[in-house]
Each structure stands twice: as structure tokens, then as C-alpha cells.
């Protein structure tokens, strides 16, 4: 292809630079859209789905009973659960016999779809608002039970269904 022939003005570049400057100047008085992330965080809406985490109830008990439904439903197979027996000596609802020994969510696999939250019969897993999950190693992104519970905190349970089972 032939190059276009440049006029004298074109070869000077000055008109182009001035036009560009004008575009920039035009924007200075306008409203700013850019946010200073990470100093300034996003305001997330109520239904936002961040990383899935585990919660405790108001009595401090782990709510998950390791039914493994979330493990089953999780489309990218990010959840891995190791079921175990709940310590019967602990002052918990005696009828909940199961509790996960370990609960691993691989955040490199999770697609934040929220299926686990939806399927959970115990309201034990929630997609909270954490979205900036980063680490130096893949293993750091495999969140184990303790870490998940720490991220999840307490979820007030108005029903406490096991009381009346």
C-alpha cells in the first residue's frame, strides 16, 4: 500500500498535538468516573457474589453439617469436603452429629456462581463481598475450614431448626 503523502503541516505534527491537548482539556472540568482503586473501594450492591465462605451461628457453632451437597453441585468442582463426626462432648445441638473435618474451597477454580449458597440446606455457606482474592502461590488460594470460617464470621440464625428436630 502506498503511504499517503504528507503535507507540510502534517509533517510539523503541531496541529495534531494541539487537537489532542484540546480533547484532554475539555475533560478536566467534567465529572470524574475513575475510582482510585485499591485506596478507594467499590460500593457493592446487595446481591453481589464474592468469594464463598463458611459461617457460624450466634452460638459460635459451625453451621455446616458436611452434607456435601455444595461439593456435589459446584460446577467447577472447587469444593472438597472431608466429613467428620462432631465432637459430642462439646455443648452443641446434640442432634447435629456431623461437621466437616476440613472444608477446602479452591479459589482458583471457583467461578462465583453461588450454587453452593443456593443448595445449602443449613445456610452455612455464603458468597460474601470479598472479590480481590490474590496470593503468591496456588496453595494460598486453597482456603481451608479455618480460613473460611474466619472470613465468614457469624450469621444470625433466626430459626435454629435443629432445636426442634
Amino acid at each position: 500500500m502506498l503511504r499517503p503523502k504528507l503535507t507540510f503541516l502534517d509533517r510539523l505534527y503541531l496541529p495534531q498535538i494541539l487537537a489532542g491537548m484540546w480533547t484532554t482539556l475539555k475533560h478536566i472540568p467534567r465529572r470524574r468516573f475513575t475510582r482510585q482503586y485499591p485506596e478507594e473501594k467499590f460500593k457493592l450492591l446487595g446481591k453481589y457474589r464474592g468469594a464463598p465462605v463458611l459461617v457460624r451461628n450466634q452460638a459460635g457453632q459451625v453451621k455446616c453439617v458436611s452434607c456435601q451437597l455444595c461439593e456435589f453441585v459446584c460446577p467447577p468442582k472447587a469444593i472438597r469436603l472431608f466429613p467428620g463426626q462432631r465432637d459430642q462432648a462439646a455443648p452443641v445441638e446434640a442432634k447435629i452429629e456431623k461437621e466437616p473435618q476440613d472444608f477446602v474451597i479452591d479459589m482458583t477454580r471457583c467461578i462465583y456462581c453461588g450454587m453452593c449458597e443456593e443448595v445449602c440446606p443449613e445456610q452455612a455457606i455464603f458468597l460474601k463481598k470479598d472479590f480481590a482474592i490474590a496470593g503468591y502461590k496456588r496453595t494460598e488460594l486453597q482456603f481451608h475450614k479455618d480460613k473460611l470460617l474466619e472470613l465468614g464470621g457469624v450469621h444470625e440464625d433466626p430459626i435454629c431448626k435443629w432445636k426442634n428436630k
Binding site: 453439617v65 458436611s66 452434607c67 451437597l69 442432634k95 447435629i96 452429629e97 456431623k98 428436630k165
Partner: peptide, 11 residues
């Protein structure tokens, strides 16, 4: 019958 299928091994 308790509806405890989430913790019941027979589920």
C-alpha cells in the same frame, strides 16, 4: 421421622 437428611448417611 426427623428431617435430618443433610446429616443422615442413608440420604
Amino acid at each position: 421421622h426427623p428431617l435430618d437428611c443433610p446429616i443422615c448417611d442413608q440420604a
